[in-house]
Every structure is written in C-alpha cells, then in structure tokens.
Amino acid sequence: MRVLCTSCGTKAIIGKTDRLSLAHANLYCSCTDPECGHTFVANVSFSHTLSPSARSSSQLVTQLARAMAPEQRKALQKELMLFD
C-alpha cells in the first residue's frame, strides 16, 4: 500500500499500524521528503465486498445444511451425488 503525504504529496512511510478492528486501522505515517517532515495519521477502513470469500460461502452452505430437517438433508445429498 502506498501512502502519500497529505501536505506535499511525496511518498510517506508507515511507521506504526494501530489495528482497531478487522475493518479499521490507524496508520502513523512520516513524509520521506526531509524538507517537509510532516507526520500524520491516516485511517484505513473496509468499504464493501466485490467478490465474496469462498470460505464464507462454504460456511454458509454448511450452516444451511445443518439447519435442514433430516429428510431434506438426505434429499440434498442425493441431488449433490448427481454432480460427482
């Protein structure tokens, strides 16, 4: 990830990351231009999903199958056998 100085636009170095949650972090940054010397905190946060995780899809299917009645689960297993 590239962070630019908010004062002069030069590349900045991330010196420390303070992770507040999986979706938000504070980045403590320093400008690499010695004439500027600006230090600042940038916030990085999760915005939205473009493509869902395959892991969460698998977990969702497992949870749905477990919530089914035993007869429904057996019928689903038979249908899935058709794809082998």
Rank of each mutant, 00 (worst) to 15 (best):
N43Q: 15
C36T: 04
I13K: 15
A75L: 10
V3Y: 15
L50T: 09
T39R: 12
D84V: 06
L82R: 12
G9V: 02
A54W: 03
Q72H: 07
T6N: 12
D84G: 12
R55C: 04
C8K: 03
P70M: 02
R19M: 11
K16G: 00
A69F: 05
I14D: 03
G37P: 13
A65W: 00
F40E: 02
S56L: 13
L60D: 12
P34N: 08
T32I: 08
T39F: 03
S56W: 09
A65D: 00
F46A: 05
T49K: 02
S7V: 09
E35S: 15
Q63V: 12
C31R: 02
T49S: 05
F46N: 00
S56D: 13
C8I: 05
Q59V: 06
R73W: 00
D33I: 01
L20H: 06
L20R: 11
G9K: 01
H38L: 10
T17H: 02
A42F: 05
K74E: 15
R19V: 04
Y28K: 07
T32L: 15
E71H: 09
S58Y: 04
C8H: 01
E71A: 08
C31Q: 00
T62Y: 05
L64F: 12
H24P: 01
L60T: 13
L27T: 03
P52N: 06
L60W: 10
L22P: 11
Q72L: 04
V61T: 04
P34I: 08
A67M: 07
Q77I: 09
V61P: 00
R2E: 15
G9I: 06
H38I: 07
A75H: 11
S45K: 14
C31S: 04
C29L: 05
F46Q: 07
P70E: 08
A23P: 01
L64C: 14
S45L: 09
L20G: 00
G37W: 08
I13S: 07
A67F: 06
F83E: 07
C36M: 01
V3E: 02
T6M: 11
G9F: 00
T10V: 11
T62M: 09
K16H: 10
P52T: 08
S45E: 15
Q59F: 06
Q77C: 06
R2K: 13
S56I: 15
L4H: 13
S53H: 13
L22H: 10
I14Y: 02
A25C: 05
A42L: 11
T49I: 15
A75T: 10
T10Y: 12
R66Y: 06
V3T: 12
L60A: 14
V3N: 00
E71K: 11
F40M: 03
C31E: 01
I14M: 02
E79W: 06
Q59N: 11
R66D: 11
T39E: 09
A23T: 15
T17M: 07
C5E: 05
T6E: 14
H38A: 13
K78H: 12
S30M: 07
V3M: 10
K74A: 14
L27R: 07
S21M: 02
R66V: 05
T17N: 06
S45R: 15
H38Y: 11
N26R: 09
S21N: 04
L4G: 09
S30D: 03
K74W: 04
P70H: 06
V44P: 00
F46P: 03
T32M: 13
S51K: 12
L20K: 14
A12F: 01
L22I: 07
F83Y: 14
M1I: 07
L4T: 10
